[in-house]
Design a protein around this nucleic acid. Structure first.
Lengths: 209, 209
DNA sequence: AAGTATACGTGGTCTGACCACTAGATGGGG
DNA sequence: CCCCATCTAGTGGTCAGACCACGTATACTT
């Protein structure tokens, strides 16, 4: 369990990050669970406490763990935004990067719509229709439903991250425009890809190309 | 310049992250530039070196800075940040769903093809045509070119990760089938999306649906 | 039994020490 | 004069120990 003494070039704190990942995986730890204390990690891994802390602080900044003074360190729900606001202030001034975020988010939303078409689950679409007719909802909430319906966990993860970025960019948020969402859902139920795309483009105010 | 002694609840290392951000902004530092040494930061900010290091290590893990032993700490090109990579390794650990990996990889490849169509850069497509006619190449190599041409850095990162996972899944690798690649490129040059999709589906042996 | 006081474990921070490495200054030999 | 080996100062990398602040569980008092 101890960290190899042979860490040529590699840094101890990175080794610790790895070990933590393994530890989480092996013990099947999930958000909310407690991980060993800093001092215990020192002993188990045969490293200094400062190195352990460097690893933990880095993971904390990433939003992957959460520390509570006097209590301990806990695994956090990944989808929290911590890193996002940070990157927002730090990184994403780059216009090209901004553009990439927007572009990627939209394209993945389109992919999810296509996936839903492919899955062709009428019952779920029916429920979606009932939902949009009965509730108030934001653009985010609508597309969360969409991405969930697409039933691809990777897309769900990626989209969540992109959406957080998007928020961090402080771009003008879509205001709710029910008819567009309705027409998307209707097109989905119709099963015609071209209609779905057209409805989506209208919502996003993009040219259909 | 010193850190407020009133950091109720706030953690010193987070304060330092903030200060670094300001410092970078004010001094107009750009990728490649050197930031003050750890010991100098201690003095300027009136904090312990360990706290400074916690901040720097966190930023390093985020890929925002780069440290070289014996030289110093430098600002890094954000665009190549390993954030997605990192989240990937943490997030994907439980999501080995083969199907998702394959599906996502293919859909992103399709998105990239669409992006290329949209960019409509004839010269680059010309070069691509020359390349496939003059070289031996693998499926990976071909799509690396494609993803690069799509000119969306996020997609590039995501695709790279997915490709790694794809490899890890030990799925049967595509053997090289020149005519398929040729027809994709030709369709791209023709500018007709339907043709491109058809060519891609043929390569991947998917139903056109 | 309830409330309070104490002890313990935890993260948070600082200090000082040492190592490994790099680059620039130094100095000697050609 | 130049070139190369050497030394030195500065840098990041790591560790150990000390304290503090905070939360909790325990034991004690009432």
């Amino acid at each position: 369990m101890s960290i190899e003494p042979v860490e040529r070039g590699s840094k101890v704190y990175l080794e610790i990050v790895k070990q933590l990942r393994n530890m989480i995986e092996q013990d099947g730890l999930t958000p909310g669970d407690k991980i060993p204390s800093e001092r215990e990690l020192c002993e188990r891994l045969n490293v200094g406490r400062s190195s352990v802390r460097e690893a933990l602080r880095a993971l904390e900044l990433l939003g992957l763990i959460e520390t509570r003074r006097g209590e301990g360190t806990f695994i956090r729900d990944f989808r929290s935004n911590q890193l996002v606001q940070l990157l927002g202030t730090f990184v994403l001034q780059d216009t090209k990067a901004k553009q990439d975020v927007i572009e990627t988010k939209y394209l993945i939303e389109l992919d999810c719509l296509r996936l839903i078409l492919r899955r062709n689950n009428e019952k779920q679409l029916e429920e979606l229709k009932d939902w949009i007719e009965s509730c108030e909802f934001t653009d985010d909430q609508f597309f969360i439903k969409i991405v969930e319906l697409a039933d691809n966990h990777l897309f769900y993860r990626i989209w969540s991250i992109l959406n957080d970025y998007y928020d961090a960019l402080k771009l003008p948020k879509m205001e709710r425009k029910d008819p567009f969402y309705s027409s998307i859902v209707q097109a989905l139920r119709g099963g015609n890809e071209a209609d779905v795309l057209r409805a989506y483009y209208s919502l996003r105010k993009l040219s259909n190309d």
